[in-house]
Simulated assay, not measured.
Amino acid sequence: MATYGPETYGELNADVYDEWHDIDPTDAVRCLAELLGEGPTGPVLELAVGTGRVTIPLAQLGIDVRGIDASEAMVARMRAKPGGDRIPVTIGDMADVEPGTDDLFAMVFVVFSTFFFLMTQEDQVRCFAGVAERLVPGGRFVLECPMPDVARYQRHQTVETHQVGLDRVRLLAVRHDPVEQRFDGHHVLITNNGIRLAPASMRYAWPSELDLMARLAGLERRHRWGGWRREPFRAEGNYVTVYEKPA
């Protein structure tokens, strides 16, 4: 994974991303819209906008949504969807948060596990700082992150079966680096036509580490839920954290 960069995942996975990661965004869209109704008014920015699964429905609600993504292939998939071509997107690294030098936002958000695609602690800290600079007073930074589950790795590695069919098998092979808090892996699709590798790397962070990054950036934690339905946080699965810039 020596040449893995911010754009690698999207460039190599865009054509299968929606199929392989079939996640219903309805709860995320509803919760984000509710949070916008509770806070200051203004445009909204999605980090790692991808194929637009959350941004497009938000835009359909009349919300002024922008995006940033490192992968032109992922953004092309979004623009091919109804309404996706009307959403302004900057091609760039979300660690830099540079959709426009003068843009300020009422909310910045990143969903699924995408924040962990920032591969170093330095990049993650820089992202928090950049978001804080781009938020209006009272604006929110909303993150959905998976709770790290390191117990699933025996001898710091694992192979899991994700799909079995008559003509295909899809596996996930991952190595875990507990010092760097890093996962490097491949989705492996085996069919009668051959083998396809889809690489993915991420640097996970614990909730307390995210809270410290927020504090360093001048943000305050307002909520931590066990999901988009505002369930109690139970330190498992994906959870949602809302940070706020003091007014």
Rank of each mutant, 00 (worst) to 15 (best):
R175A: 15
D184M: 13
Q157A: 15
R53N: 11
G37W: 04
M1A: 09
Q60C: 03
P199V: 03
R196F: 01
T51K: 01
V242L: 03
R155V: 13
N238R: 15
D85E: 14
D211A: 15
G227F: 00
H162V: 11
R155T: 14
G50K: 02
R215I: 14
D102L: 14
E46K: 11
Q181G: 09
Y17L: 08
M107Q: 14
S208P: 00
D102R: 12
V49F: 02
E244M: 11
A95C: 09
L58D: 04
D184F: 10
T161L: 15
L143W: 01
G39I: 08
R230H: 00
R155Y: 05
A205F: 10
M78H: 11
L189Q: 13
R230G: 01
Y153V: 10
R79G: 07
D24E: 14
P25E: 01
R126K: 14
N238L: 12
A106E: 09
E38Y: 01
G139K: 02
R168G: 06
V89R: 06
R170S: 10
E34M: 11
V49R: 02
I195D: 00
R53P: 04
T241V: 15
H223K: 04
L143E: 06
P232G: 07
F109W: 09
P232D: 05
T158N: 08
K245G: 13
Q181F: 09
L47N: 00
H186W: 14
I68D: 00
T90M: 07
D177T: 10
D211H: 13
A2T: 06
E244C: 14
P146Y: 08
F141M: 03
P40I: 05
E98I: 01
D102A: 15
R224L: 05
C127V: 08
T114N: 15
T51G: 09
E160F: 12
L172Q: 14
R222N: 00
E46V: 13
R152L: 07
V49W: 08
E7T: 03
R215Q: 15
A2R: 02
E7F: 03
Y153E: 11
E231S: 08
L47W: 02
D27F: 09
R222K: 04
V89C: 07
L35I: 12
L189V: 10
T3S: 12
S71K: 08
D15C: 06
V179N: 06
G52S: 05
A198R: 07
D15V: 10
Y9H: 13
G130A: 09
T191R: 06
R140E: 09
A14G: 05
F128S: 03
V150N: 12
L166E: 14
N238A: 02
E72L: 04
F141P: 02
P178H: 12
T101F: 10
R222A: 10
E38L: 12
A235E: 13
